[in-house]
Design a binder for these strands. Sequence first.
DNA 1: ATCACTTGTGGGAGCGCTCCCACAGTACCT
DNA 2: AGGTACTGTGGGAGCGCTCCCACAAGTGAT
Lengths: 351, 351
Amino acid sequence: MASHGARGRSGGRPTLEEVAARAGVGRGTVSRVINGSPRVSDATRAAVEAAVAELGYVPNTAARALAANRTDAIALVVPEPETRFFAEPYFSDMLRGVGAALSDTQMQLLLIFAGSDRERQRLAEYLAAHRVDGVLLVSVHADDPLPDMLSQLEIPAVISGPRSAAETLASVDSDNYGGARQAVEHLIGRGRRTIAHITGRLDVYGAQRRVDGYRDALRDAGHEVDDLLVEPGDFSEDGGRRAMAALLERRPDLDAVFAASDVTAAGARHALRDAGRRIPDDVALVGYDDSAIARHMDPPLTSVRQPIEEMGRAMIDLLLAEVADRRPSVSRELERRQMVLATELVGRASS
Amino acid sequence: MASHGARGRSGGRPTLEEVAARAGVGRGTVSRVINGSPRVSDATRAAVEAAVAELGYVPNTAARALAANRTDAIALVVPEPETRFFAEPYFSDMLRGVGAALSDTQMQLLLIFAGSDRERQRLAEYLAAHRVDGVLLVSVHADDPLPDMLSQLEIPAVISGPRSAAETLASVDSDNYGGARQAVEHLIGRGRRTIAHITGRLDVYGAQRRVDGYRDALRDAGHEVDDLLVEPGDFSEDGGRRAMAALLERRPDLDAVFAASDVTAAGARHALRDAGRRIPDDVALVGYDDSAIARHMDPPLTSVRQPIEEMGRAMIDLLLAEVADRRPSVSRELERRQMVLATELVGRASS
DNA sequence: ATCACTTGTGGGAGCGCTCCCACAGTACCT
DNA sequence: AGGTACTGTGGGAGCGCTCCCACAAGTGAT
């Protein structure tokens, strides 16, 4: 009789059916208890729970996924090479935030890199197979086809930084514009006059917003806004170093720098050192992210804190709501689908 | 009629059955084609493949998992806090190696942290639910209960560093003993006389073996083996710093240091700098892992390279073999289940 | 012509769940 | 007394696969 069932089974895991028999109830009732349905009497619930405990029952995920047409898994997709992921604390901080937000859930988190074409290909197959209920998209560039693919496959998705002001996907972001203003206003308040900016990758919307904030803060304070003081970077350390060197060449009189990320600031610091400038005596330096790097830099780096933990939680909340709302004919209100969280300036010795 | 099927379905993914109808064959035949069975005629195979392409058929993972009692997923379990994972390149290098080895497979890789009790709890549930076919265990401490849990659940597992010489699990490791000898012999060859060692966490077997290699290399060369020259570290940067400071205090005459990891060496470098020692003029420094840190250190760090890429591949090979061998009554030969890969000394300016 | 294999194929049964319909029981109105 | 509603429960049907048995057709030895 067990001809089929014995196949590959290890130690005979108990099934719903067995739990039901043990508790003297039907299959449906056990299912309701397992899934926390309120439509179960207290007595029955207790009996089922006892049977579950005695048998050491654990639901079979595959069976559940098949029957319910969901996977209870979501993917965190990083459209960058792995090396970048490990080099930039932004990503690991985000991962931690998301993980924390997910830890009171049944949901499983998958980390997927999509930096190379090869990985992209794999990801596409992965999504086509609907192996996740939803997707978290981190740091997407302006022309990335991923978001479109997702909406075509009707897979719920939340993006960590919107691609533009007209983002159609649900999104969570920190107030890049305001954060940049905080940084620049801080430098102005410290008496700095010639404030440069090393940008992030400009195909990332948030990086553009930081440039806007930088410009507006200067203008509003009646300071000069000189394009020679703005040099594009790419969020990397090397990019920061190169940009700083270029800025020193062009405007050796600068007395402050606002870098679009802490890692960029670290690169800038090297270039400043190489040029014999002291921080903060000669040049004040402010970063963005308030990552571990900022605290450990020498001197410790003033930085704009993004509430990554909260951002992670917000993304999860949005995504889970979207996943749940796959019920027929419910079309959520589109408001509140674009969340912007406030930043905070953390002052340290570098400015 | 579609009352059930329509539930939550998005756009009606085609099923095996539909592909079969389209190709004018039976369900079994399509399944055989999908799974690459050789028992299919070329003509039939071509017809099925055409139907698959036309319909855009993608197998339903959940159904397959349920029917075949496998998940096509394996977990990389890191029994450390996340912060450690990101701080120590060993882990990310390992992840990259494993990922590469897995990329020509259908297998999915899950990254699971089990640093805190909470995470441990989650992991236990996860494994009890048999949500993965096998487990890769990285950097396990001597008294960790995880391996026992795995064998109790009969989940195939491979461990990256054996817990002892009598490891029962399949394991892959680099030649820690030999690598340490290489490092020390190199320093001796450079004319260093008083060679200290900062160890790794001594509840990690590999760290002990490095101490053994260090001692034996010194003894065989007729050098002094002084316990005052050995200071325990914990693979972290801070640990390296503290250990170096302690060593300088005890044996200010030392002229070389072999650190159990590159990160440890980075900490030691700081302490040496703080004490005004020049590298390599006053003190030669050798690390272990040959991670990115070694190349970027100032001065670049001589280090013992572990073939992480190959180690990852070896782990995957062992694990997949073990997973496949879940067939009844096949008990593999136990030889070749403990693999040890050779290390290589990479000389740089620090020594 | 018979037997013994081999090769390719179809399709039934079953994996362990969830969903939902049916129905018994109870409660509270008319 | 009958209706209407709700609560709790059992179990059939079905999710989309894989496994395996059965069997047709072909091959080659006797």
